[in-house]
């Protein structure tokens, strides 16, 4: 579990840094892209870790599967379910 969480975290930071560096090389915005995307990489890393640990709702698609098809459930029930998942997501962010 420890390796799983740390690899999720570090991978996102690394990808953010590489993306930022690449943007800088192409656009010539020397340190700016690197700084911004590195920080966003940290954010993505935290998101990854929270998803791995199940503290935040899974990637959007997983929610869709968890909810029953709309035809089978009344609109009120559907509404409540969506509120529920939304709140879970907000609490994490």
């Amino acid at each position: 579990m420890a390796v799983r969480v740390s690899s999720d975290f570090i991978a996102a930071i690394f990808v953010g840094a590489v993306l930022g560096w690449g943007v800088d090389q192409i656009a010539g915005t020397e340190p700016l892209g690197f700084i911004v995307l590195l920080l966003l990489g940290f954010a993505a890393g935290v998101l990854n870790v929270m998803r791995t640990l199940g503290l935040v709702a899974q990637a959007p698609s997983a929610q869709a599967r968890a909810a029953p098809p709309p035809a089978a459930v009344s609109s009120a029930g559907n509404e409540a379910r969506r509120d529920d998942t939304e709140e879970k997501g907000r609490e994490g962010r």
Binding site: V3, R4, S7, D8, I10, A11, A12, F14, V15, G16, L19, L37, L40, G41, A43, A44, G45, L47, N48
Partner: peptide, 23 residues
Amino acid sequence: LVVVIEVISFLSRPLSLSVRLFA
């Protein structure tokens, strides 16, 4: 902002998947 974070999160998947097994 969220889209950029989600994209980075998506791109980090192959890396974390491979690093986990290898490490």
